[in-house]
Amino acid sequence: MDVALLQGRGLSKRFGGVQALEEVDFEVQAGTIVGLIGPNGAGKTTLFNIVAGTFPPSSGVVLFGGRTITGMPAFRICRQGIARTFQVTRPFGEMTCLENVAVAAVNRHPGCPKEQWMTLARESLAAVGLEALKDTAAKHLNVVQKKRLEIARSLATEPTLLMLDEVLGGLNTQEIQEAIGFIRRLRDDRGLTVFWIEHVMGAIMQATEKVIVLDQGRVLTVGPPREVVADERVIHAYLGD
């Protein structure tokens, strides 16, 4: 079996007096869809922020493709091929949808002719079905459209690893099915690896090969989705004492 694309070793993070993560080890294999679940405050987004370079871990290392990326600034991690979305979306409100995506595209191909990165931007926007709104300012989008825009921006960085932070919130059942299909196709057609925080358990069950469960800053268990949801400790963590 080959080396995991993304690995965390002994990751800890402390904020003031709060221990947000403690000695977390995890692996995301290339070409898989891995779910990250856990109750609120378990440290899921903190883990994402550490991987994406929003802040460094208090201790531990992050390896991407076998090389350490621990403590690198966010923009450099992005250029290594890791893209992420934000749980609460962060569109560039005053810019159009196409411009939003173009920011990602132009930094992927700095110094290249404009047609090249504009094509990439247009394709990414089309991939999430927002091409009709390309000239609309991002602040006018609804919540679901903003989530799509974030995915389009991530795709325009041409990542090898895509980290999704609760992209299904606010969708109805049918839209959720479409979104799951879309994310699976990203893996099947583009060969993307997906690391995915999600509260919609049905989606995790359907789409992922592996699930990592965090609880109170520690890894509670890791395994195939069916085994994980049947695990007593996981049920206990979600339902509380």
């Binding site: 600034p73 992005c78 934000f86 962060r90 560039f92 920011v103 990602a104 992927r108 991530s154 325009a156």
Partner: peptide, 15 residues
């Protein structure tokens, strides 16, 4: 403009 709108999002996109 990306930096002005949201610097964290900009950094996450490689700016």
């Amino acid at each position: 403009r990306a930096v002005q709108n949201d610097e964290r999002a900009a950094a996450s996109l490689g700016v």
